Simulated scan of single mutants.
Amino acid sequence: MSARVASRVAVTVAVITLVLSTVGFVLTLVLSAFVFDEFDAYGEVPIPGTGTVELPAGEVTVSFHTVVTGQPTSGFPIPQISVSIEPPSGVADPVVTESVGGTTTVNSDTRVRVWVVDVAEAGEYQVSTDGDVGGYITPRLAFGHGSSYGWLLWVCGALIAVGVVELVAALLWSARVNKAARPLAPHEVMTLDNPPPLSAVPTISAGRPPSDQGIRLEQLRQLAALRDSGALTEDEFQAEKRRILRG
């Protein structure tokens, strides 16, 4: 495989890698938000109201969940709400940290992450909620977790970076190969044994017979052309020049 063909193959492979990894990143991002994200995996509590949720040890997300009549924007207004989480007897209080996330809407069902809770031990937790939610339809707090496929985003992101590096390297290689001097084909090399075609040699006017001096000048011009094309070395040019001048 020639260098030129190999460089084109490298560019094509880099472009395919970049396109597929970008599509995979976007697809994983969409699925994580609308399919893989189990925001209500551990249950929901109405606002205002009380309820019991079974929480595992570790990080738990708390999302404001409601129904909308239109398509909300990223600036979806979160009402003033509060939550109180009582642990089982003898268990440390969970640590609640504000962590407002993006708005996700599926078929008028809207949710926004509001808090992240660090649960010390698994068990049943008593939850009390309150807030000014008069303008919202069926408002509630949902307890769950994020997508378990978040590692796919890192994989796709790494592939995108690899694709960009490959593409830059392949383009530089292709440009270097295209700029390289193209070797002459055998039929393009001019030597004394393989003179240029007659059409390339300037013709002498047929109006009058050429003089000896005119013939020598024409031969010298042809020799200079052969030397400039690389068909003759400087020593060969000088030797032929002396021969012509001697007649």
Rank of each mutant, 00 (worst) to 15 (best):
L245P: 05
T28M: 09
E166T: 01
P202S: 02
V95S: 11
V114L: 06
L192A: 10
D228V: 04
R242F: 02
E240K: 14
L27V: 15
A225G: 10
L226D: 07
V177Q: 01
V53P: 12
T12H: 04
R176P: 06
G58D: 03
V91W: 02
S74D: 15
D212F: 13
I78A: 02
P56S: 03
G58A: 07
I244P: 08
D130R: 05
T104C: 03
L226G: 12
A185I: 01
A33Y: 02
R4P: 00
G135L: 10
P196D: 07
T73H: 07
S148L: 07
Y136H: 00
R242P: 02
A185P: 05
V91I: 13
T105C: 13
E234Q: 13
V116S: 12
R227D: 00
V13P: 01
P139A: 02
T104M: 11
V15Q: 11
L20N: 06
V201C: 06
L159H: 05
Q80G: 07
S147W: 05
D93T: 13
P139I: 00
L245A: 02
M190F: 15
V168D: 07
K179S: 09
I16Q: 06
G163K: 09
V83G: 09
V119G: 04
P186D: 14
S32F: 03
T105V: 14
F237D: 04
P88I: 08
L192I: 09
V201G: 03
S174V: 07
V62K: 06
S148Q: 14
E59G: 02
T66S: 13
A181Q: 04
F64K: 01
S2R: 13
F39T: 08
S63M: 02
L220W: 12
V96T: 13
S2A: 13
D109H: 10
A175G: 05
V95K: 12
I85G: 08
G123P: 00
T28L: 14
E188D: 12
N194E: 12
F143L: 06
H187T: 11
T191E: 09
V119T: 06
T73P: 01
S147T: 15
R243F: 04
E98F: 08
G135M: 05
T97Q: 10
S174L: 15
D132Y: 09
D37M: 00
P195H: 02
T73L: 01
L152F: 08
G230A: 02
D37K: 03
R4A: 15
T50H: 12
R227W: 02
S108K: 12
A169T: 06
I47Q: 10
E54F: 10
N107H: 10
G90R: 08
S84W: 05
V26Q: 14
M1A: 14
T17Y: 10
V15I: 15
R140T: 06
V23I: 15
A6E: 08
P46K: 00
